[in-house]
Write a protein that binds this DNA or RNA. Structure first.
Length: 259
DNA sequence: ATGTCGCATTCCATGCGA
């Protein structure tokens, strides 16, 4: 079972790249973020023709998350609980068959939070607290669970090309990393860090200032595994070559193989 | 290098979010 996550930065503009990825890499499950379209504009037919079922939580202009699976998808939750006034489309959860049981998966687009000191940063931290509260509930299922997505968090200095320069950014502030650590401390495994200690395992390079060419990247896309998923982890791959394609997203997919 | 994208609108130029 291959499960992948990719911040696609406009699913409509990136459709040819997405179809190529599905064809070449053939993940069983793919979580997408930053669709930047409403449900009705989602290219469902083309993706279904490629052999995938789709669950979509879209929004006009910004945000938007989806889950694609070769198997049937049963929606578990649309939107993160804990704030009825939060209208951002940043969370979608579903189950899909896995072996004799099911895999539970969430597609997560965590708020950016910049600039620090504004309501945007407060929203990010509150959103992370809500995620942690919900994740704690999900662990009670005691099933393979993957919280996959763009966390907009670099967990440690080796995940940033310039940790000193980024110290006061919302993606790297101590409060942000503290919330991310709380998620891990509930019992979730950062899949990439379970297979390597190597620094510079980036998943994002800014479009600006030749960031890709200079390898000025960030590791902000993560697969967080419940104990039952972590026990079945075989490998993790960052599909870095996707950043060198024509009209790329600024993020690349990350995927894990579960036995 | 105020350096690039994608989306939206007052729509071909500008603002917003990242």
């Amino acid at each position: 079972m291959i499960i992948a996550s990719w911040n696609i930065n406009s699913v409509r503009l990136r459709l040819p790249l997405l179809l190529g990825y599905l064809r070449e890499t053939s993940p069983d499950v793919l979580c997408l973020q930053e669709l930047k379209c409403e449900d009705a504009q989602f290219p469902r037919m083309e993706i279904e023709d490629a052999g995938y079922n789709c669950l979509v939580h879209g929004q006009k202009s910004w945000n938007g998350v989806a889950i694609l699976s070769k198997g049937p998808l049963e929606e578990a939750r649309r939107g993160l609980p804990g704030d009825e006034n939060d209208a951002h489309a940043r969370y979608l959860e579903a189950t899909t068959p896995f072996g004799a049981g099911v895999l539970r998966v969430a597609s997560i687009y965590l708020p950016n939070g910049n600039p620090v000191g504004t309501e945007k940063f407060a929203y990010k931290l509150a959103w992370m607290a809500r995620l942690n509260a919900h994740a704690r509930q999900l662990l009670a299922w005691e099933e393979p669970l993957v919280l996959a997505g763009d966390y907009n968090v670099m967990p440690a200095p080796e995940d940033v090309y310039d940790p000193v320069g980024w110290a006061d950014d919302a993606l790297f502030r101590l409060e942000t990393r503290e919330q991310f650590r709380s998620l891990a401390n509930l019992g979730f495994t950062d899949a990439l860090r379970a297979v390597t200690d190597a620094p510079k395992q980036y998943t994002f390079w800014d479009y600006q200032a030749l960031a890709w060419q200079k390898n000025k990247g960030l590791r902000i896309d993560h697969l967080m595994l419940s104990p039952q998923a972590a026990d079945r982890l075989k490998s993790v791959t960052i599909d870095k070559a996707m950043r060198a394609k024509e009209k790329p997203s600024d993020h690349v997919p990350i995927r894990a193989e579960l036995a």
